Measured scan of single mutants.
Amino acid sequence: MSIQHFRVALIPFFAAFCLPVFAHPETLVKVKDAEDQLGARVGYIELDLNSGKILESFRPEERFPMMSTFKVLLCGAVLSRVDAGQEQLGRRIHYSQNDLVEYSPVTEKHLTDGMTVRELCSAAITMSDNTAANLLLTTIGGPKELTAFLHNMGDHVTRLDRWEPELNEAIPNDERDTTMPAAMATTLRKLLTGELLTLASRQQLIDWMEADKVAGPLLRSALPAGWFIADKSGAGERGSRGIIAALGPDGKPSRIVVIYTTGSQATMDERNRQIAEIGASLIKHW
């Protein structure tokens, strides 16, 4: 067993022997301040990774656009098919120029040779490549099948209805392509620590998230040296922004954090800054 596999296998073990965790309302004060600064709703939840206990939450059962955070769930569904012998990570998928959609920095470079399922998941999570996500959605049967996968996990809230990039439209009061912070946090925890996926697939999923290259201005910008984070960000229309993450000190994750916002007129930089400040408060009061 590799060191990384050992780390993920012992996530519940280490967490069980940690000192009790206590909620700190100071972080919620910052979440509410972010709402004021952005002029928009902000949803927040913080779960203990081992027990699933909610440590703090704000608007945990209000719907927010998922945006690209759905790509972690998508690759979880792909990995479940791999575990069941219905898919192979090494299978190569070929596609054409007509398949390319807006923001496809990886797939646009491989029109000639195609990409493997493993490479597509890596591109979808680490670079948020939209064509990679659409190609992977095709392998599982489309958005409705991802929703069905989530329902089978016990998540009857999260739903995907459309493809990239239309799913980022974020129309107010439109339930399409949305989740709730509580539902997303619980589902992410199941994917990373539950028995739904094999140990190898859980490790692969967290490795992809740990290698995320496009979430630097968010929670990662607030992390002290030595902290662990595996995350996936999302951005959408109407001032929408979000991030889902597993993080913790001492090089291992111990909490799940989900943050979503929508309806702001603020710039992307300002949305990023507010999420980073929430992260800084979380870490300060850990």
Rank of each mutant, 00 (worst) to 15 (best):
A9Q: 08
Y260T: 03
G76A: 13
Y44R: 00
F149K: 07
Q203M: 14
S240K: 01
R59V: 01
H24T: 15
V21L: 07
A40D: 05
I278A: 02
E237Q: 14
A200G: 14
I244M: 08
R220G: 04
T179S: 09
I171A: 15
P65Y: 03
S201H: 13
L73C: 08
R41A: 09
F64W: 03
A9I: 13
E35N: 03
V29L: 09
P20N: 14
L19V: 15
C121S: 04
F64Q: 02
A280T: 11
L38T: 09
R241A: 04
D177Y: 01
A215R: 04
E26V: 10
G90W: 11
G226K: 11
R91Y: 06
Y44K: 00
Q97L: 14
G90N: 13
R220T: 03
Y44E: 01
H5L: 10
W286F: 06
P12R: 05
F17K: 07
I244T: 06
E169G: 14
S240T: 07
S104A: 08
A225F: 10
E62Q: 08
P253L: 10
L47Q: 07
D174Y: 03
S68D: 00
P249I: 06
G251C: 09
F149M: 11
L196I: 15
I243N: 02
R189Y: 15
T193N: 15
T198W: 04
K252A: 13
R162Q: 08
V82N: 06
L218Q: 03
S254N: 13
A34I: 10
P143R: 03
T261Q: 07
G234M: 05
C18F: 06
L136P: 00
A40P: 02
G141Y: 05
S264V: 05
M153V: 14
N98D: 11
K213N: 11
N134R: 04
M67R: 01
E119Y: 03
Q203H: 15
P12W: 12
T131F: 05
N168G: 11
L49A: 09
P217G: 09
E145Y: 10
A280M: 15
F70I: 06
G236S: 07
S233Q: 01
T267V: 10
P217F: 07
M67N: 12
S122N: 15
M127H: 08
W286I: 04
L146S: 01
H285D: 07
A132R: 00
N134A: 04
V157R: 12
S57K: 12
C75W: 00
I45H: 05
S201V: 03
L136D: 00
L150M: 11
A34N: 03
S80R: 11
E210Y: 10
L28Q: 08
E56V: 08
E175S: 12
I93C: 06
R118M: 10
Q37C: 11
G85N: 11
A23C: 07
S51Y: 08
A23R: 04
G114D: 04
D99P: 04
I244R: 00
R7N: 11
E87C: 07
R271Q: 10
T262W: 08
G242Q: 02
H156R: 13
D83F: 02
V21I: 08
L223W: 03
I283R: 06
L28E: 06
S281Y: 15
R118S: 15
E210V: 14
K232S: 00
T107N: 03
S281L: 12
L282R: 01
G52L: 05
S57L: 09
E61W: 12
A235N: 05
R241V: 03
R159E: 06
S281M: 11
E270K: 13
K30F: 07
M67L: 09
G85I: 04
E119C: 04
T116L: 08
F64A: 01
L135H: 04
P143K: 03
A123T: 05
N134W: 02
I259G: 01
F70M: 14
P249V: 06
L188H: 04
L19A: 15
I125H: 03
V21H: 05
E61I: 09
P25L: 10
A200E: 14
H151T: 12
G141C: 05
G251I: 07
F228K: 08
D83T: 05
S57I: 07
D207M: 11
T198Q: 11
A40W: 06
L135K: 05
R59K: 09
D155N: 06
M67Q: 08
L120E: 01
R220Q: 04
T69D: 00
F58T: 09
N272R: 03
G114P: 03
R41H: 15
S128V: 00
L28A: 10
R202Q: 15
R159D: 06
A170Y: 12
G234L: 01
L135C: 06
Y44T: 02
D48R: 04
E46D: 07
R59L: 03
I206R: 12
K144A: 14
S240V: 02
L89G: 06
V106M: 12
R81C: 05
F228P: 01
Q37N: 15
L282G: 03
M180C: 14
A222L: 07
S57G: 11
D33F: 15
Q4E: 15
K284L: 13
A225V: 13
G234P: 00
R176Q: 14
A246M: 15
L47N: 03
E166F: 13
E277F: 08
L218E: 02
Q88F: 13
M153Y: 08
E61N: 13
Y103M: 06
S233I: 00
R238C: 14
P253E: 06
S96E: 12
T147C: 08
K71H: 00
L73K: 01
L197F: 06
I206P: 01
D207N: 11
S264F: 04
P105L: 06
K32Q: 15
E87D: 09
Q97F: 15
I171M: 15
M1Q: 01
L137S: 05
E237W: 10
K252N: 12
S128Y: 00
M180W: 11
S254D: 13
A183N: 09
A235H: 02
Q86I: 12
N130C: 05
D269Q: 12
W208Y: 06
T69V: 03
L188P: 00
A15E: 04
G279S: 10
P143C: 06
L196N: 15
R202K: 15
S104W: 01
A276D: 05
K284D: 14
Q204Y: 09
K53V: 13
A215I: 03
V257I: 10
I229V: 10
G90V: 12
P217C: 07
G114W: 04
E119W: 02
G279F: 05
L197V: 05
F149V: 09
L73H: 07
I259A: 03
Q88M: 11
F17G: 09
F149Y: 10
N168F: 03
L196R: 15
S57P: 02
I283M: 11
T198R: 09
E277S: 10
A225K: 14
V106E: 14
V31Q: 01
V214S: 07
M268V: 09
D155T: 01
T126I: 09
I229N: 02
G226N: 12
L10W: 07
Y260I: 09
F14N: 02
T138I: 11
E175F: 12
N168S: 08
P25R: 08
H110Q: 09
D161F: 03
A133Q: 00
E119V: 02
K213G: 08
T112R: 14
A15R: 01
S281V: 15
L146E: 01
L19Y: 15
L137Q: 05
S96Y: 11
C121N: 02
K32Y: 10
L167S: 06
W208N: 03
D207P: 02
Y95K: 01
V257W: 02
R92T: 11
N272M: 03
T139S: 15
V78P: 00
W286N: 03
H24I: 10
V106C: 09
S96I: 10
L223A: 10
A133D: 00
D83V: 03
K30S: 10
G154S: 08
L55V: 10
D207Q: 13
H24Q: 11
E46H: 08
A211Y: 09
E145I: 10
V214D: 02
G251D: 11
R202Y: 05
H285P: 02
A148N: 14
D83Q: 09
P60K: 15
L199S: 10
S104K: 02
C75S: 07
W163E: 11
L120T: 04
E145N: 15
A9G: 11
S233W: 02
V101G: 07
